[in-house]
Simulated scan of single mutants.
Amino acid sequence: MSIEEPASAERRMDEKSRIQSIGKMREILGCFSTVDRHLSLAEIASRAGLPRPTAHRMVSSLREIGFIEQNARNGSYSLGIGLFELGSLALANMDLLREAKPYMDRLSRLAGESAHLGVFNGYQVIVVEREEPGDRPTRGLQPSEASPAYCTGVGKATLAFQRPEVIARVIDGGLKPYTNKTITKAEALKEDLAAIRKRGYAIDDCEHEIWVRCVAAPIRNASGAVFAALSVTGAADRMTDKKLSDLAPLVVQTADTISRQIGFQPQG
C-alpha cells in the first residue's frame, strides 16, 4: 500500500477548502433578494447557516472584490456593483441573447411595435434586450430594467409556468397597484396565470403602465423549464384587442422558435 506524499495530500486539502469557501460565499449571496436588499451580519449568518465568525470572514472577502457593499451608517450589507458588472457580461454572452436577436428584429418589423426579451430571476423579470421597428420614440421597459412579474407581459408569461411555491413567493412579496388595472388580489392573479398556461400567452392590459398593452409568450430552456419570455409591446391606442389577438400566434411561434434554437425539444 502506497502512502500519499504530504505535498499531494496538502494540495487536495487546499482544493477542498477552496471549494467549501466558494460554496459558503454562494450561500451568502443567495441570502439577498429584491425583497431583502439589506441584511445585517446576524441575518446573513442565520440564513446561510454559518457561524457568525465564518460569515464575517466570507462577507469581508466578498466586500474586497466588490460583490457586497456595506452601509456606512447602519452597518447593513447589500449586493455590490461588481455583481451587476459580472451579470451584465454574462447576459451579453448568453446563448439566449445571441439566438433571439434576429428573431426579435423580425418580430418587431412584422408587428410594427417594439419587442422585449425578459429573463425571470425568481422574483422579477429583467429585460435583457429590446428591438424597435424604426424611429418611433421608445416607450415602456428598457434593457437591464427590472419589471414586476405579476403585471407585465414578459413577467406573467414566465410566472405562469413556475412552481406553485415560486408563484406564492411573488404574491407574498406584495401585489403593488401600478395602475387601476393592476391585478392586486392573489386569487385573481392565480386565475389569470391559469388562463395564460391554457392559451400559451399572456396579455398586459395597461397593468404596469397605463398607456401600454402587450402580448407575451414563454421561452423554454433545454430542459423544458420556462425561464424567459418574449413580448410585443405598444401604445394602448394602437394595440387594440384585434391587434393583440392577431399578434398572439406570431409571438408564440417566435418564442417557440427561440426555445428550439437554444436546445428545447418539444415532445411528440
Rank of each mutant, 00 (worst) to 15 (best):
A255R: 03
G80F: 08
C206F: 01
M58L: 09
P266W: 10
A229E: 08
I210P: 00
G122K: 12
G140H: 08
R63H: 07
V252L: 15
F227A: 06
R139L: 14
H208E: 14
G153K: 08
F227W: 03
I258M: 09
I262G: 10
P102R: 11
I81C: 11
E64W: 02
A255L: 09
A216N: 00
S144V: 13
I65F: 08
A235W: 01
T138G: 09
C206Y: 03
L117Q: 00
Y77D: 03
A160F: 07
V215L: 05
I3L: 14
E132G: 07
R136M: 13
S21T: 14
Q142M: 10
P53Q: 00
N121F: 06
M58R: 13
L83N: 11
I81T: 15
E15Y: 01
V226N: 04
H116N: 14
V232G: 04
P177S: 06
S223L: 12
R57H: 09
T54S: 14
Y77E: 01
K101D: 12
I65N: 10
H38S: 14
A92V: 01
K16Y: 04
S21W: 03
R98S: 11
A222C: 10
A90I: 15
G200S: 01
C151M: 02
Y201R: 07
E69H: 01
L107G: 07
K156H: 11
W211L: 11
N221Y: 12
G49R: 04
A42R: 09
I210H: 10
M239K: 02
E10T: 12
G30F: 03
G66D: 09
G224M: 07
